[in-house]
């Protein structure tokens, strides 16, 4: 497994997560963000696991061949249309990040918000890195954008089975709670469709996002991309 290191967290993204739209944080706030970034970089222990499977479109969804996992619903069927394989991926920043956030939550809400935003941006950066690794490992394939469990009508209740196919607890220490919340909290499970033919789903957009109606970014007049 290639190791993933993060040396720099995208501060524009962090500012956007914090709710800034057309302005940037002021000097004091920027200082806090930069200071927290250093601590965050020391705290994270990015880990990932991915596996490539053949897939099969069936009535109720998409079957992951050779496993007992069926990704159910219309959204994932549409997302993986035309794909012959899929990469199942799970990433995490580790439970140390949860502890860091808990410890500042006691007496410093501002840092809590900043750490939370930094972690959200970092886990996406880690996912980006894993995407790059998959691209290197499978150079002959195009891939779709990352479809998260819980998007559209792909139920969160698949979380356990998905983690078990990846053996994610043993390999990177990620579990899910009875309410299907991933733990450590800053973890992601997602699916990339793979095809040798170029396809439409390469970029995520508001039109193919199920958060479109509730999205905080859109309420603020921006988007996440």
């Amino acid at each position: 497994m290639k190791e993933i290191t993060v040396n720099n967290i995208d501060k524009y993204e962090v500012a956007r997560y914090l709710g800034y739209k057309d302005t940037l944080p002021d000097v004091e706030m920027t200082k806090i963000i930069l200071e927290c970034e250093q601590t965050m970089l020391k705290t994270i222990k990015p880990k990932y696991i991915y596996r490539i499977f053949d897939i099969e479109q069936i009535d109720e969804g998409v079957k992951i061949v050779g496993t007992q996992l069926v990704l159910t619903g219309e959204a994932i069927k549409k997302h993986l249309k035309g794909c012959t394989k899929a990469a199942l991926m799970c990433t995490t920043l580790s439970s140390d990040v949860d502890m860091l956030i808990r410890s500042v939550e006691v007496n410093n809400m501002i840092k809590t918000l900043v750490y939370d935003a930094l972690a959200n941006v970092t886990i996406e950066q880690v996912c980006d890195e894993v995407e790059k690794i998959i691209e290197e490992d499978l150079p002959e394939y195009y891939h779709t954008w990352r479809f998260g469990i819980g998007y559209g009508d792909l139920p969160l209740s698949l979380q356990d089975k998905f983690l078990s196919v990846l053996n994610a607890q043993k390999t990177i220490g990620v579990c899910s709670t009875e309410s299907c919340i991933l733990t450590p909290k800053k973890s992601v499970t997602c699916i990339l469709g793979l095809s040798k033919e170029k396809m439409e789903n390469i970029k995520k957009s508001c039109d193919n996002c199920n958060m479109k109606e509730k999205c905080q970014f859109r309420k603020n007049g921006t988007t996440c991309n």
Partner: peptide
Amino acid sequence: GPIGQLLEPTGTL
């Protein structure tokens, strides 16, 4: 082996 859920406070068990 492990139960498969993380204990409090990271998890809910």
